[in-house]
Amino acid sequence: MSWLPKQKVVIPVDFSDTSLAAISTAVEMAASPADVHVVHVLVPLEGLSPGVVWGEVNDESREKAVRKSFAEYTAENNLEGVQFIVQFGDPGFMITEYATDVGADLIVIPSHGYGGFKRLVLGSVAERVIRHADCAVLVLRRSDAE
C-alpha cells in the first residue's frame, strides 16, 4: 500500500458516533470525497414489531430511512459528495464483498474496541472484515479502547 491518495476507499458505518467520525479520516485518505464509499449494511428484520406485522417496516422503508439519516449527517458535517451504499445481509461479509466488487484499494474500519465479556457477546465486524478482505484494511482503534 502506497501513501498516495486512494482511488476507492470503502468505509462501513453503523451510525454509531465512532463510525460516523471515521468518515472524515477516510475522506482525508482519499483523492476526493467522491472516492469514499460509505457502506451501511442492514441486517435482516428479526422481531415481529408492529411495523413489521402491519407491513409498514420493510427493506424498502428501512433503506429510505437510513438514506435520510445519512443525508442529514453529511449536510451537518460538510461531508457532501461521499457515496452512500446500502446493502442487506451479514455486515462482515457484505462489506468485504462490496470492496471486492468495486475494486477498492482500502477499507477503513472503525472498531469499538470492546474487550472481555462484551467482545464475546457483541463480536466484531472488524475482525471478520480483516479476515476476508482482499485489500488493505485500516482499523481505527478508539483512544479509550479496553
Partner: peptide
C-alpha cells in the same frame, strides 16, 4: 428510533 426507522 434507529437510523432505519425501527422503533424500540
Amino acid at each position: 428510533v434507529d437510523p432505519d426507522g425501527q422503533v424500540s
